[in-house]
Design a protein around this nucleic acid. Structure first.
Lengths: 212, 212
DNA sequence: CTTTTTATTGTCCCACTGGTCAATTGTTGA
DNA sequence: TCAACAATTGACCAGTGGGACAATAAAAAG
């Protein structure tokens, strides 16, 4: 155990034990299958086949089907997070931070129907899988926090919260549209939509907040 | 055929042949099972059990599983449509029409996690089921048209289109939030969110539309 | 060169699923 | 009362899926 830690320290970037490689291959395969087959059609055998291995190996690295797909979701999640984080590092002003989050969520190689379909299938399982729910919740919390780091410089905390909720919902909704009717919304449209939302809400003199 | 039409005309409200009753029971049962089990866990036997019948009867009324769930989606769809239409009938001004659509989409007995979960599961299957895709598309088209009927009185056609897209996405996104993290968004919050979106976008002096 | 892990495969098992079908039980109409 | 017909059931079937496991290959460690 201490050995493992030491090695990880020495080789912080590629600490790939052999098993870790397989693991990654497998959860990526899982995700790929999910894209085409949905959760109902995503079978262990298909995942194995897609990774060029046997079904046995899948359960060698993952306790069961559930765990496999939980890791698949983590993977997908991490990809999205990295996309945003990369852009966030370059942002200086609050507005730039906002744009970083928005644009990162619609990156070219991510905002695609297949990916969206897999994401949808995973989301649909959230209510029945505590782990998925936690992962999802964490993703949302991070996104929200990223948004707030931009918004707090631009409006009151109360409105910031409100707008952040709206932005996350709007982003999810646009992804959903892409999944339900591919081609009905382009990357550029989506980005513009969200940006317009933000600027409109920021410009808005908030009406009597009393009424609800 | 002409007989059928004539009868439907004479008894426009309750044209219930016995079979139609069973059919309705079954697709409602299907939906109920979907709420708890998701698409992967929704089996014919469970649906039958939930309707207090045997599996055989399900396939007596529906060619196969797929058809059953397609009808389940139609059912759910119709419920939502009726909710909106009812409110729409009372609306007089464009603004009232907008509010009708918005509030109809978050009606108290509809905007609930279980219903949302089932809806999500169905959406996740859309990419693999042409019929589901069509149903979904139709629902979206109607919603869009309803929104435009309100928006066209309030802004330019171009902006109306844009805002309509945003509203549908935002509504879907808020539903999604309800499904992913029940309790994270209340009915009132959701409505306010969408209404604020609309009024903010309407108030907004659209910036240089050139840029994308 | 052993010994001990780790990686990998193929087989086996059992529960279960969608779907078919013949048989049974009402219902209805003559 | 009887035949025709729809509703409903239960048994059955072939296929599949998740998962356990023992056997084997390959590496690592010693």
């Amino acid at each position: 155990m201490s050995t493992w830690i030491r090695q990880a320290w020495i080789e912080p970037v590629k600490l790939k034990r052999l098993g870790d490689i397989r693991r990654k291959e497998l959860r990526q395969a899982a995700f790929a299958v999910l894209e085409r087959e949905g959760i109902a059609g995503a079978t262990l055998e298909k995942v194995a086949a897609h990774a060029g291995a046997s079904k046995g190996i899948v359960l060698h690295y993952f306790r069961n089907k559930q765990e496999l797909f939980e890791h698949a979701m983590r993977e997908a999640n991490a990809v999205l997070r990295d996309a945003v984080v990369a852009r966030l590092r370059l942002a200086r002003t609050p507005t730039e931070r906002l744009d970083a989050v928005i644009e990162g969520n619609f990156e070219e190689h991510l905002f695609r129907p297949p990916l969206c379909h897999a994401w949808l299938s995973l989301c649909a399982e959230v209510p029945r899988d505590e782990k998925l729910a936690r992962i999802q919740k964490a993703l949302h919390a991070r996104m929200r926090s990223n948004l707030l780091s931009g918004l707090h410089g631009l409006t009151s905390p109360k409105d910031a919260n409100d707008i952040a909720l709206g932005v996350t919902a709007l982003i999810d909704g646009l992804w959903l549209r892409l999944g339900l009717e591919p081609g009905s919304v382009s990357r550029e449209q989506a980005i513009r939509q969200v940006k317009d939302f933000v600027s409109a809400r920021l410009a808005m003199r908030r009406p009597e907040t009393a009424g609800a």
